[in-house]
Design a protein around this nucleic acid. Structure first.
Lengths: 212, 212
DNA sequence: GTCTATAAAATGATAGAC
DNA sequence: GTCTATCATTTTATAGAC
């Protein structure tokens, strides 16, 4: 019986090994953050030596930036695809996003922990998160404005302010959802979102499908 | 001209030195978190040797727990005093809390960074934050219920859920407030809170005074 | 592409003098 | 209460063999 074992020194194709490394690093960084994670820690998870790891990513900073960048790309692709197939309201869209996140605790924790750490200007992901939050707020504010024009959201609300507020709410709920006992992140978000919908308006009929 | 200089080896009373250490440690931990902060780092800020630091707190874990505990006590005293002197509505109370926090970016960052880090079960403050969040939600839920009985808050809202939601909102706004460019944390919170107040109800007339 | 060996620095903590 | 000296580890990173 042949078994695929983790053999020391096994030579793997470049891209495959790099994928392994990104996965292991995402795990490690999500648990202990940038400072709390050692390269040896990541290397062990992959089943490779520490210099073997550094062959693929020249240093720790490059590694975490690669992890964050890759997850970001993945998310961007997802968001783009949901936009293309239908025209979800902000409520439906954020609801879908939350449900998706509810299946990815490791990813959520990676962002929660790293975003907080990155407040330090010397943190390798400092600029990454500053840019990321600006971008997210801008995109969300635009979607809010569109919804207001379509009567799906109260037009009295300030789009920019509401965007920041909704991002804040999701971030904060994620933190409490990751704790023991966990709060019901998605239920709470949806309740909050419902309060923003004008009395007459019902859901858009364009709910975003879940494709976990 | 006599100048109070930082003299090496200067002997200070126990409590005074310990206060210095807690202040320096709070600064350091807020900037770089638990893992990213070294004892030598803290010791230098205090102007003491690293073993000198360890004389007052036996290890790094004891140090961060002391920092968090002290700040918590300070906050508890503040909250208690605002309760005693008046009977603020939840809206007024959270508004006051936010304005107070707006004057304490370092304290806010300490909690933002450490709470996220503490998601790791091996983190020294893991239990601390689990307990803290449960406690905060419970207290807030009780205040919400009281406000509902007094007609200050929509009675249709679920107190427990709203408590978690408001804590999440404040946490998330704090994170974005600590970033560049900062969001206007208090303005956004107050807008959000206003949407919870029944149409007829005005402010309680018991606004919490600011005593920065 | 992966390893062993190793360097160079940082870190948490202890022992003992003053 | 504070320091110097010191230790044992850990950590990031490099050099060079296979």
């Amino acid at each position: 019986m042949r078994v695929t074992e983790r053999i020391e020194g096994l030579r793997l194709p470049r891209t495959e090994r790099r994928q392994q490394i990104l996965a292991a690093a995402a795990q490690a960084f999500s648990e202990t953050g940038f400072h709390g994670t050692s390269l040896a820690d990541v290397a062990t998870r992959v089943g490779v030596s520490q210099p073997g790891l550094l062959h693929h990513y020249p240093n720790k900073q490059a590694l975490i930036l690669a992890v964050l960048g890759e997850r970001d790309d993945e998310d961007s692709r997802y968001l783009e695809s949901t936009f293309r197939e239908s025209d979800p309201s902000v409520v439906d869209w954020l609801t879908a996003l939350c449900r998706r996140n509810a299946h990815r605790p490791e990813l959520v924790q990676l962002y929660t922990v790293t975003a907080a750490e990155s407040l330090d200007p010397a943190h390798p992901a400092h600029e990454f998160f500053q840019t990321r939050y600006q971008r997210i707020r801008t995109v969300l504010a635009q979607r809010i404005e569109l919804d207001q024009q379509k009567g799906r959201l109260d037009p009295a609300l300030d789009p920019g302010g509401l965007a920041a507020e909704l991002v804040a709410l999701m971030d904060g709920l994620q933190l409490q959802w990751l704790m023991r006992p966990p709060v019901d992140m998605c239920a709470l978000l949806e309740q909050s979102l419902q309060r923003l919908v004008p009395a007459g308006s019902t859901t858009s009929g364009n709910e975003v499908r879940e494709d976990a």
